[in-house]
Simulated scan of single mutants.
Amino acid sequence: MPTEKSVDAALVALRQAVAGLENAVDMRFEAERENNEIDGEVRRVHADRARLAQELDQSEFRANRLEEVNREVSRRLVTAMETIRAVLDR
């Protein structure tokens, strides 16, 4: 009888250990899945950041170009007004 009890106790301990191991494996798989999701999100954020940086650079270039064109138009308007004044003063 004592041998049966120790075998039963050993089987119970073995079942608990296997259940604990299965639980640990499940938790590890879940953590790995979450890490993969986080890695994917980080990659998407980096891609968005790169795209936004490129768009910002393009916008800054366009703004600078518009500023240059604006200065040129202003210069031409001043020249035109001066020409008109000179013609009117004659």
Rank of each mutant, 00 (worst) to 15 (best):
R43L: 09
A53N: 12
V25F: 05
N35M: 11
N64R: 14
A47M: 00
L52S: 03
V42D: 00
E68K: 14
N36W: 10
D26F: 11
E37K: 07
L66M: 08
R28L: 13
V25P: 00
E41Y: 06
N36C: 05
S59F: 05
D57M: 03
N64L: 13
F61G: 06
E34L: 14
N35K: 14
D39C: 05
N36G: 10
M27A: 15
E55W: 00
F29H: 15
E67D: 09
D57P: 01
R49Q: 13
V25N: 06
L66S: 04
F29G: 11
D39W: 08
S59W: 03
S59I: 01
E32A: 13
R65N: 03
R33K: 13
G40N: 01
R43Q: 09
R44Y: 02
D48C: 01
V69E: 11
L52D: 04
V73A: 06
S59N: 10
A63V: 08
R49L: 14
Q58F: 02
A50I: 02
D57V: 02
E60I: 06
E30A: 14
L52F: 01
E60L: 05
L52P: 02
R62K: 12
R51E: 12
R33S: 10
E34C: 11
E32C: 08
N35R: 14
A63Q: 11
D39M: 05
E41T: 08
Q54M: 01
E41K: 10
L56M: 05
N70I: 13
R51H: 07
E34S: 15
E37H: 07
N35I: 09
D26H: 13
L66N: 07
R62W: 04
E67H: 09
A50K: 06
I38P: 02
F29E: 14
V42R: 02
D48T: 01
N36D: 12
E55N: 01
R43Y: 08
F29K: 15
N35C: 11
N36E: 11
V45M: 07
E32I: 07
L56G: 04
